[in-house]
């Protein structure tokens, strides 16, 4: 479960003044559901998700992720979260196996348990053929599979995806989308950000529209349709953003 309360992030910039990247966001995401954060580039999606993954510290407000406070217990939060984005690259000089085992060890797995978990994930994702090849020699699709194995190695109850399909080809993007659905069916709490309407529409149980750091609207697609009297998600998005003060 993810529960954000008045989450705020201000970046101090000596030249340009303070930048309020995330402004008092509150929402809740339940296990077995996908929460989609929909917003244009620069709307604050990445910052919001980095706050939840404790990569950044909030200026104000807080959130509880898998029962732990992001301010008080950031390390516990990270141990219960799988974080994947296009910015989370792999170590090129490590092999697929070394990569997954490295993150497994950092998550407290070792010995037989780690080996079993790695084998299980490699079989599930079809990594075995290139398990002992260095990551910098692999295709984008192969790398995506390793990234997925890396986020899943400690079987976290919460998954955070920041524009995970950005820049990927159709096949690689399909792998990711399938994987996100799979996380939901396994009862994980999933939060996912995108600016691609069709992706959000296909995947998400709940949608939050974010613009200039503020969460303007939130609810299921049906609720959003009812509120805006628009059928198409793109129209719903445009109407919501244009109505913002």
């Amino acid at each position: 479960m993810i529960e954000a309360t008045n989450l705020t992030k201000v970046f101090r910039d000596r030249k340009g003044g303070d930048i309020r990247a995330v402004h008092g966001i509150s929402f809740r995401c339940q296990p077995g559901q996908i929460y989609g954060l929909l917003g244009a580039n620069g709307a604050g999606k990445t910052t919001a998700l980095r706050l939840l993954a404790t990569i950044l510290r909030p200026t104000n407000g807080t959130a509880r992720v898998a029962g732990f406070d992001i301010r008080e217990q950031p390390e516990k939060v990270r141990a219960n979260v799988g974080f994947l984005s296009t910015a989370t690259a792999l170590y090129g000089r490590l092999t697929a196996r070394e990569t997954v085992e490295y993150f497994g060890r950092l998550n407290g797995l070792n010995g037989d348990k780690l080996r079993r978990r790695t084998e299980e994930l490699f079989a599930l994702l079809g990594i075995n053929e290139f398990a002992d090849r260095r990551c910098d020699k692999l295709s984008t699709g192969m790398k995506q599979k390793i990234s997925i194995a890396r986020t899943l190695v400690h079987d976290p109850p919460v998954m955070i995806f920041d524009e995970p399909t950005l820049g990927l080809d159709v096949m690689a993007a399909r792998t990711i989308v399938g994987f996100i659905r799979d996380c939901r069916s396994r009862g994980k709490t999933v939060i996912f950000s995108s600016h691609v309407m069709s992706e959000v529409q296909k995947l998400c149980d709940y949608i939050g529209i974010i613009h200039e750091g503020r969460l303007l609207a939130g609810g299921s697609l049906a609720e959003l349709r009812q509120r805006t009297r628009q059928a198409d998600l793109e129209e719903i998005f445009v109407q919501t953003v244009e109505a913002a003060p």
Binding site: R50, A53, I55, E75, K76, R78, A79, V81, F83, S85, A87, T88, A89, L90, Y91, G92, F103, L106, N107, G108, R150
Partner: peptide, 14 residues
């Protein structure tokens, strides 16, 4: 430069 900093910062290591 290689974009691995965010990957490692998302791990439980302090």
């Amino acid at each position: 430069e290689r974009g691995t900093i965010e990957t490692i910062l998302a791990s439980p290591a302090s």
